[in-house]
Write a protein that binds this DNA or RNA. Sequence first.
RNA 1: GGACGCUUAGCUCAGUUGGUAGAGCAUCUCGUUUACACCGAGAGGGUCAUAGGUUCGAGUCCUAUAGCGUCCACCA
Length: 888
Amino acid sequence: MAKKPIQYTEDTLPKAYEAGNFEESIYQSWEKAGAFKAKINKKKKPFTVIMPPPNATGTLHLGHAVMLALEDIMVRYHRMKGDSTLWIPGTDHAAIATQNKVEKLLAEKGITRHDLGRKKFIQEVEAFVKGSQSTIRNQVRKMGSSCDWSRETYTLDEGPSLAVRTVFKRMFDDGLIYRGNRIVNWCPRCQSTLADDEVKYKEVQSKFYYLKYGPFIIGTARPETKFLDKVAVVHPDDKRYKKYIGKTFDVPWINGTLQGTVIADKASDPEFGSGVMTITPAHSMVDFEIAQRHKFEIVKIIDEKGNLTDAAGKEFAGMNAKLAREKIIERLQEKGLVEKIDENYRHNLSVCYRCDTAIEPLTSTQWFINVDKKIPKRNKTIKQLSIEVVKNGKIEILPEKFEKIYTHWMGNLHDWCISRQIWFGHQIPVWYCDNCHGDPIVSIDTPAKCPKCKASELTQDPDVLDTWFSSGLWTFSTLGWPKKTADLEYFHPTSVLETGYDILFFWVARMIIMTTYALDEVPFNTVYLHGLVRTRNGEKMSKSKPETCIDPLDMISKYGADALRLSMVIGGGPGNDIRLYEEKIAGYRNFVNKIWNISRFILLNTTAEERATKFTKKLIKTTADKWILTRLQKVIKNSTKLIEEYSFSEAGTQIYDFLWSEMADWYIEFSKGEHKNSAVLLHVLRETLKLLHPFVPYITEALWEKTGSEGFIMEQSWPKYDATLVFTADSKKIEKIHMAIGDIRKMRGEYKIDPAKKLRAIMYGGALTSLLIEKKQAIMRLANLEEITIEKKGPKPEKSLSVISGGIESYLPLEQIFDLQKELERVKKEMEEHEKQLAGVNSRLQNKAFMANAKKEIVDQAKQDAAHHEEALAKLKEHKASLEKMAK
RNA sequence: GGACGCUUAGCUCAGUUGGUAGAGCAUCUCGUUUACACCGAGAGGGUCAUAGGUUCGAGUCCUAUAGCGUCCACCA
């Protein structure tokens, strides 16, 4: 760091704070000093946050920026509070997303992954990841994130990979992971399964066909799946069809005649269409479940490529299912089986959330996690465990409303399909024996030979795991599990998980599932969910509309990371979306600059010796000193409480208001006069910088150094509320002085007195007279007076403007001004205001019910208010009379 | 279809257990006084979405309605 100058001058301190000149070097010196490094200290409480790992190949967007800002606030606050604080950064391999990206790059060269083969393709992906990983790391640094880089983890690192295989093996042994032929969401483009929540819906318009099915009319949007619909389902209570239940009959159908059976099941909605539906178990989730309940045969009609199977009959087999639709309808029409076709059917089409391709539900042999099976020895399902920890408060979700949403989602969770037919990711730790084709071999390490036939020709399952499987282990796989590390023992469960509410199900729920299962421990105690960043008009920022997007990196270089952080944190709460626009960021840049200039004033007006002197109570001198110290205690108390409650916005706002409206607008103004007290100026500044540090780490660190303070501000202790620095009575006196100055300013403004004109004033201060005398210079300067007469009390000066508030009477002799009429108007207006207020208060005081029911403090306050207004009115009345007399 | 949230000054939002509405930006007027024009002083601007109810008293609690939004489920 730069050498501390003995005395600052206008030249050594620039007028404006240029974030770009400070941020990088400050971050480097923190990192170099090891200030982010967490240390285990059993005497201290741990505070642990794991960073939701950005995609290794991504770039920083506003979602990351909000996340980093909020997490850094929590982390810096706890570090200053003295907790052993750990924030682990990391990156995610993001299986499908990354593979798609690399495939796209290869496609530009006309290569497919199959041309390369698995091994070479993975090398290609890994090279790509290595190249772009450093980008996101540096961008995370730019935000000022104080995370422990020595513990950085990548989801494909050896540690997390071992954790993945270990959990897989254990779940398999516990019978929770199984391989089964079940219906899954299949993306024909990605050629892979998707989890239920990776499916999105898109409204489309299509044809809807009404077909004659034996004695019934059935409706469908997808006739190409209906070849083998042998079962018609009616609602058990539907009187129209009761007589058919259990009957079988011949149905003329696409390829000849089928034998149809009618069954009853509540899944059929009597209100919808004709109230009869046929089922296609292999290609509809609902139908699959009905078929399972009734143990019907499940035949695949469409294969993984989207083509019709042999089950469609010779004529149709091998055709693309969608293209075959018209042909099938033609066939049905020939047979007179088409009742009618609705051309304008609107419905939701399920599509892949990655590539927007229509999902084909189909049956396939995949790996699943059974969510409804009891865990051996624990006698509970993972679903039950996951619901329980939220219900009993071991995990608190903020905002609270998401607890309900979470519980509902978890309650309806189906078995989780975890295998993906892609190459990039954690390959499933299962091997098949090429010799005896026995049971799958599940193993943490690559097995040498088949345990059954001892053959060494083993083939590993080609599939990889859903990326959320490894993310689900993230709180403990980053800490070394399955090894019993000191980190794991000390830092787990983590304290807060902070992330966007859009990945509550994808990730947060998965972490709860996996951690309660594997560790019998919650992954975190609190979940803080932030909202989406939107444009000024509330639109989503989307990459497809670049004009709506704000690039956080642009904003950092333009306004500084501190300003960007504030603009995303202030005005937002948990779960609420944040509207962000450039003027807002500029506004907080102005505040950051204000911090700079407050400090600049103090630095220019103090000596190096003063800066080296420790603050003690003996150095308190004036009433104003006591006032600012009292206000400081209040803001320390409030902001601490608010941060503890996760109300970062309100905490930040209070510190902001304190510094700007109290410290700068009043205390510094007072300090320009005869009562400058360097010790208090410096003390309040230092304490406020500490309070601000979690929000705006860079400028506070820069100024900490300039004030000649020891060490880093990020390593200082969080300010403590000190009741001995609270001076309530003196504090109130100062506020009355503020009011009196405000009154004179208002009179000048309303009366349109030339602002440059210095006035003469008379003030009667009553009990505050001595303080008025003490602050005489300041009052003259702030109200722009050339002469002031201060008395305890006295007769109302003839021919003068007057205002009374807080027990101080202020008069501006009128010969300086000329417009009597205006002053009369103003006095009338002021009287009206007092009368209005008085009427309100009196109506309450005269209300017997109010007097009987309201709390004592409220009644007392009302009485005081009434007295105050009455007194003011009396004085104003007198003043008005004299004005009227003059006017005549 | 189910659940939830929002509606407060022109804009973005605060408003703590019910006590009579606030901030920032924008607008208007004025201003170079020991930091800051990325600033200072002052002003205007709200029947707190609507209609009922509880209460001495409702922006705040309850009910209904409207508009907007989000999530879940997807209907063959």
